[in-house]
Every structure is written in structure tokens, then in C-alpha cells.
């Protein structure tokens, strides 16, 4: 079963449109949603949570096709939004008391544990917490009601590397159970690089690519070549190129690498940037 199933979703705003977005998060997996600021990551998450209505298409979350009409399903979904809006005058422990009144399966001990682990100040009112601490508090809340699906929107932005590392630990720990899934959107690709099972590239409201991360990384190679060698590369093999007066830097699928040219492994970030900024913008179906 898919934890999240999005098919051909459209959503128009005056300055921005989400077009024909299709992606699936299979149960038990981690999907990394990569896209620059403004690419539609937050809009997609809002659509998933039923915070706004799609113009066309279908969205199913944990088997439910109308989350807005079935709010009890949200017991199973933990969300850490890009901005956490908890009552500003409440302290971390009071927030735990509040959350317990909303969730049937609130685990107060787990919440305390997470507050400790993430070093969240207990006696500071929420409004006085730093952005990082607010995020950490949001995390603690999201993980403490035993959800099956975690949705994180830029949750690691603005956090120091140590905390990001701890959070990645928490995330991988979360997926120990087979029915636990995670959708994590970020523009900090390095966090997602190792731990994701699937990646989806989002750009200007469209899906550029959605693929198993390992397959993507195995398929793509970075090469530097001359213009002549560049012309020998078949169009379907070219993921993106950047031409200079002296040659070209390209990302190419393994099978299209010209004879004798040195090919090196490439990171997700490089693939993404090359796909967006390089000159081959067609949808990639690897």
C-alpha cells in the first residue's frame, strides 16, 4: 500500500501553478522531496493535509481520499511544518499537556524523552524560543502521538549540524517499523542524500523526476568533455549540460557516456541543479 498516493494533481494560484503532479510514497519508505524555494513543496504538503483544495487529480493518504472530511486520520500523521505555531505563552511541558488532549495515543513519557534528547528548554514560553528550538518542539510533538506517517516540511533548515544529525537518527529510528513512512521536503539535499529511499525533484510546480534514489545515483555520472564529444551523447542520455567556451560539464546516464571519457559519481544536489539550470529541461524518466 502507498502511504501517500498523488495522481495528476493541479492547483492554480495567481502567481504559481502546480501542474500534473504525480508521486507515490510506498509504505515503510522515506521519500525526499527536493526543490528550491518556491518550487511547490509546501503547497504540496498543504494539499496532502487538506489545508487547501486541489483543482484536479486525486490524493490518498494512508488509504483515505478526503483527509479534511476525516480528521481522525490525522492521529496517524505527524507533521512538522516549516513554521510551528504553538500557543506563544505556553512552555514546552504545558504544550505536552495540551497535545495530550488532542491525541488518543499521546505518549507523555516519549514526549519528555524527546524534549530531553533535543535539549529543548522546558521553562521558556514558546514565543521566546529560538527558531531552532521551536522546530525541535514541533518535532517532539509530531513524534509523540505514535504516527504512522511523518511529514516534514523544511524541518531541518535553520538547525545546527549536531541537531540535524540527531533528527536524522530519530527519523531512521522511526522507520524501523515496516508500516512507518516519511515524506521529507528540503532544499538541504545532503541531509536526504543517504537516508532516502525515493527522491522526487520538484521545480516550479512540476515534478521533474521521481525515482528510487539508489537507481538514480547509479545511473547518473558526471563528465567533463569537449564539444565534439558532447554531440556524440544521445539526447535521452543527457540529464543536463553546462557549456563553456572550453568544453562542457554534463550529467549523463551511464549508458550514454562517450568512449574513453572519465565519469565520476554525482550527488543528488548536483543532479538537481544541473537538471534545473543546465540546458536539458525535459522530464527525466530514467
Amino acid at each position: 500500500m502507498n502511504a501517500i498516493d498523488i495522481r495528476n494533481v493541479f492547483k492554480s494560484y495567481p502567481e504559481f501553478t502546480m501542474q500534473d503532479v504525480t508521486l507515490q510514497l510506498p509504505e515503510g519508505m522515506i521519500l525526499g522531496l527536493i526543490g528550491e524555494n518556491g518550487s511547490g513543496k509546501t503547497t504540496l504538503i498543504k494539499l496532502i493535509m487538506g489545508m487547501c483544495k486541489k483543482d484536479a487529480g486525486a490524493i490518498e493518504v494512508l488509504g483515505c481520499s478526503d483527509l479534511a472530511g476525516n480528521p481522525a486520520m490525522k492521529e496517524e500523521i505527524g507533521v512538522v511544518p516549516d513554521e510551528v505555531f504553538l500557543p506563544p505563552f505556553m512552555k514546552a511541558e504545558e504544550i505536552g499537556v495540551l497535545a495530550a488532549k488532542f491525541y488518543r495515543s499521546w505518549d507523555a513519557a516519549r514526549y519528555r524523552e524527546l524534549l530531553d534528547m533535543l535539549r529543548i528548554p522546558l521553562k521558556t514560553p514558546f514565543k521566546d524560543l529560538s527558531k531552532g528550538n521551536k522546530m525541535r518542539c514541533g518535532f517532539a510533538c509530531a513524534l509523540s502521538h505514535r504516527p504512522k506517517l511523518l511529514i516534514l516540511d523544511e524541518a531541518t533548515a535553520g538547525l545546527d549540524p549536531i541537531v540535524r544529525d540527531e533528527i536524522l537518527d530519530l527519523l531512521t529510528d522511526f522507520t524501523r517499523q515496516e508500516d512507518h513512512s516519511i515524506l521529507i521536503s528540503s532544499h538541504i539535499v545532503s541531509d536526504l542524500e543517504r537516508v532516502c529511499d525515493y527522491v522526487t525533484f520538484l521545480h516550479e510546480g512540476s515534478v521533474l523526476l521521481t525515482q528510487e534514489k539508489d537507481l538514480l545515483k547509479e545511473e547518473c555520472r558526471k563528465i567533463v568533455c569537449s564539444v565534439r564529444e558532447l554531440s556524440a551523447i544521445p539526447q535521452e542520455a543527457l540529464v543536463g549540460k553546462r557549456e563553456t567556451p572550453y568544453g562542457a560539464e554534463c550529467i549523463v546516464r551511464k549508458w550514454g557516456v562517450p568512449e574513453g571519457v572519465n565519469a565520476s559519481p554525482v550527488s543528488l544536489e548536483e543532479i538537481y541543479v544541473m537538471m534545473v539550470k543546465g540546458e536539458a529541461h525535459e522530464r527525466a524518466a530514467i
Binding site: 515503510g28 519508505m29 531512521t172 529510528d173 517499523q177 529511499d197 528510487e212 539508489d214
Partner: peptide, 16 residues
């Protein structure tokens, strides 16, 4: 899953 978790890699990788 626990191997993927400890090595901090994708579950699909260890499965393969």
C-alpha cells in the same frame, strides 16, 4: 530495516 537504520542508508539498498 535495522541494518539500513544503523548504516543510515536506504532500506531499498539493504533489501537489494
Amino acid at each position: 530495516r535495522s541494518l539500513a537504520k544503523d548504516l543510515r542508508i536506504s532500506v531499498i539498498t539493504t533489501k537489494r
